[in-house]
Amino acid sequence: MKVKSSKWISENRLNKLRHLGTTLRYSLYVITHPMDGFWDLTHEKRGSVGAANVIIVAALLTNILRLQFSSFLFVNVIWEFVNLIEIILGFLAPIIIGCIANWGLTTLFDGKGTMKDIYMAIGYSLTPYVLLQLPMIFISNVITVEEGAFYGFLYYFSYIWCGALIISAVMMIHDYTLSKALVTLFATIVGMMVIIFMLLLFFTLISDAIAYFVSLYKEISFRFY
């Protein structure tokens, strides 16, 4: 398709935006046809990292908006204890660590996906979370506790949908069978824990080492003071 360039946006950029739009719209196909969708996502290059970024940021925003704008009947927040950085990191860190752990495992067990593929797959898998949880913020403000079963159903459904998408994503991008995908996912969770443990160990050791040199410096400075 030929794109007409205008004076305030270059043709190149407009094309990029078009591409982002197409790949973003492709997420709607992925979530309804997971097997086919995830296969084409990586093998036919129908997805993009940009679109995955957009979806992940949207999911993160949904997560934050949910706390602020949901009715207190369903989401009850003690604002004194809310830390925005904690929420953001708590959302992004598992995704990044999960990518690394999954990539580390699947390269060993002849998975076909690259790191980029895995990241894209996780991003596209979060689409139902945005699509369901965002309207639920509005819905929560027009229903009562007695009608809360509806809310609860949608809530769990969004999680189940995302989970199913992640399983099929692992199957498709690595070209695994279902059982192998499940085992890999379980091992990924264990791998994530190992990574977190290593990070904690690393930071504790570093801080201990720094503390040692600080106290050494203090001792010496006291002696000569």
Partner: peptide, 18 residues
């Protein structure tokens, strides 16, 4: 009711308000 986070009474009032 929202000040006191009383969900049942809030729901009652909200239903009527709606």
């Amino acid at each position: 009711f929202e000040f006191a986070l009383d969900r049942m009474n809030y729901s009652k009032a909200f239903q009527l308000y709606r």
